[in-house]
């Protein structure tokens, strides 16, 4: 598949930001720790073991939970009126303006290049245990899928269904979800690359790496 990479890069360069709404992950009393305009950093370290910037504390049942940033950016729109208040799950607390990284740009552009296997329903998804274990063992993409192969376990309405792959035969180049994640309908689950396209995909990645400045 050919794409107009120049157009895509121009599009992302014109607005390389994403606004992320940070909501209360559960109920509790909120105490903000970040300030308006503060730079945030996501987890770091070899194993991402160092937590990101502390955004707020959410205390529930006498347990204060530290809610930290999961990506780099700039804090905006802190809802100071909620300071010290009990908030319900899902309450909007602040936003982070995040500049897309080179890897994120690659991921987004690859959705245009790879053959995408999308989520048929809003559901939780898991890789079949055999696929997950093969992926853990091999650094490079190597698992080949053809139509009819077991692709993904969909856990919907408390039932597990094995989804058969439908689409262009190829290698699983990209997995777009974490096992057990809730994925919205039509969001990409797998990015499949036909073996003939591998060189082209690698060329695209290389060009983005060369041309995208962080």
């Amino acid at each position: 598949m050919d794409i107009n990479l120049n157009d895509l890069l121009r599009h992302y360069r014109s607005n390389p930001y994403e606004e992320h709404e940070i909501r209360a992950p559960h109920t509790g009393v909120v105490k903000f720790r970040a300030e308006e305009g503060q730079q945030t950093f996501g987890p770091s370290g070899k194993w991402l073991h160092k937590p990101g910037t502390l955004l707020f504390l959410l205390e529930r049942e006498n347990n204060p939970k530290r809610i930290t940033a999961s990506f780099n950016g700039e804090v905006a729109g802190i809802r100071h009126e909620l300071e010290g208040c009990f908030v319900e799950a899902g309450t909007l607390l602040l936003t982070i303006r995040h500049r897309l990284s080179k890897e994120e740009i690659i991921d987004r552009i690859l959705t245009e290049v790879l053959s995408i296997f999308p989520a048929p329903q809003r559901a939780r998804y898991y890789l079949p245990p055999e696929t997950a274990s093969q992926m853990d063992k091999k650094a490079e993409p190597s698992i080949f899928l053809k139509p009819g192969d077991d692709a993904i376990i969909m856990s919907l309405m408390k039932r597990d269904t094995m989804l058969k792959y439908e689409g262009t035969p190829g290698i699983i180049y990209k997995v777009y979800f974490h096992s057990g994640d809730m994925v919205e309908r039509d969001a990409p689950l797998l990015g499949i690359c036909p073996p003939d396209n591998l060189k082209y995909v690698q060329k695209v990645i290389q060009r983005i790496k060369n041309e995208w400045e962080e």
């Binding site: 559960h26 319900e88 309450t91």
Partner: peptide
């Protein structure tokens, strides 16, 4: 009261 999950006891007791 909106909670994260019906299966989280901390949510139920906090509410």
């Amino acid at each position: 009261y909106r909670i994260a999950s019906y299966k989280d006891p901390n949510e139920i007791f906090a509410v």
